[in-house]
Amino acid sequence: MLDVRTIYHEPTVPDSSRGAQVLTRWPDAERVVVDSHQAIPGLHGNAGAVKDWVRTKQTVLVLGEKKSLSARPNGRSADFIGPSTSNGCAMACSYCYVPRRKGFANPITVFTNIERILGYLERHARRQGPKPAPTQCDPVDWVYDLGENGDCSVDALVSDNVRDLVDLFGRLDGAKASFATKFVNRDLLAWEPRGGTRVRFSLMPEAMAKVHDLRTSRISERIAAIDDFVEAGYEVHLNLSPVILHEDWLAEWTELLDQVADGTSARSRAQLAAEIIFLTHNAGLHEVNLGWHPKAEEQLWRPDLQEGKRSHSGQDNVRYRAAWKGRWVQQLVDLVGERLPECRVRYAF
């Protein structure tokens, strides 16, 4: 997954315990001091880097400090989107939205001021007090999404940031961590989440995953890990996304849901819940993908099925046409109820 050969880092990183930990992990890597993790000449915004898309993810690491901390209200995946301890990813999913903002290279950036982030999260969670009423996010706990811009299971290969977060929410009353993942990191099974962390395994039909989920764990491996994570004290949900439409899509999803039903225990299925998210794409990402993975765009870029949509962040995206999408969403929701009836659908769009 990682063969780090170059580490870009802000000047103060080696002075922090977490920064020193990561630098020690790859002692032979070239170190390049940069003023900011957000603007690295030759890495960010370099159109020529598209040809090295995957190699960059494998060999480059960025270290910096998270300057601005906030917990944004959400209401879908979680009650709040917590301040991230990283962004970027070593995996190479064709539909990932993060490169839309970061340009032509998207390696992992790890934030080393973890103590400040942990302190902020603990204070924020304690200020909320008891949750006044159940929500679709959780009936009891305030849920904090910690992996909006990366994959925490992969981040745990780089530093102890994720373990620190799991430990924090394992002892916080009334609050729960949550992150989606496409990577089975069995090191997490030795931790003590105490029910305070929700792992959302992202799933899509195997044929689609082979094209679009590059450098990730196989779908069968993710399904096989569900029981083990439940037994280890995690809450496990499913992230059924992105749903990519094509002529045989519903048959493929039927097969996938049957694989989950047959491959998990009654205990695991009883606590399952799912999010369903249909593909949203972007013209800029379409152009980037044509430079490194054009095969993916044959399935992602479907003007015959898609229409323009202005996102909440002001981006011009494309989604499946609203006049048809509602019917397709309901078909998949009904299919979950038929093939995996124990799994409630928390939301679908």
Results as ranks from 00 to 15, higher is better:
71 A>V: 14
74 N>K: 03
74 N>G: 02
76 R>W: 09
77 S>W: 02
78 A>R: 00
79 D>K: 07
80 F>Q: 01
81 I>N: 01
83 P>E: 08
83 P>I: 08
86 S>G: 07
87 N>D: 15
90 A>H: 13
90 A>D: 06
90 A>T: 09
91 M>G: 13
94 S>G: 07
96 C>K: 09
98 V>G: 08
99 P>V: 14
101 R>E: 08
103 G>E: 05
104 F>T: 04
109 T>A: 10
109 T>S: 04
112 T>C: 05
115 E>L: 12
116 R>V: 10
117 I>H: 00
118 L>M: 10
118 L>V: 11
119 G>P: 15
119 G>H: 03
119 G>S: 07
121 L>K: 08
122 E>K: 04
124 H>Y: 10
124 H>F: 13
124 H>V: 05
126 R>E: 11
128 Q>T: 03
129 G>W: 14
130 P>Q: 13
133 A>R: 12
134 P>C: 09
134 P>Q: 04
137 C>V: 14
138 D>I: 02
139 P>H: 09
141 D>A: 09
143 V>G: 09
150 G>K: 00
156 A>C: 13
156 A>Q: 13
156 A>R: 06
158 V>M: 09
158 V>F: 09
158 V>D: 05
158 V>H: 07
158 V>K: 01
159 S>H: 03
160 D>Q: 05
162 V>D: 00
162 V>Q: 01
162 V>H: 01
165 L>W: 01
167 D>M: 04
170 G>N: 04
174 G>L: 06
174 G>H: 15
176 K>S: 11
179 F>A: 15
179 F>I: 10
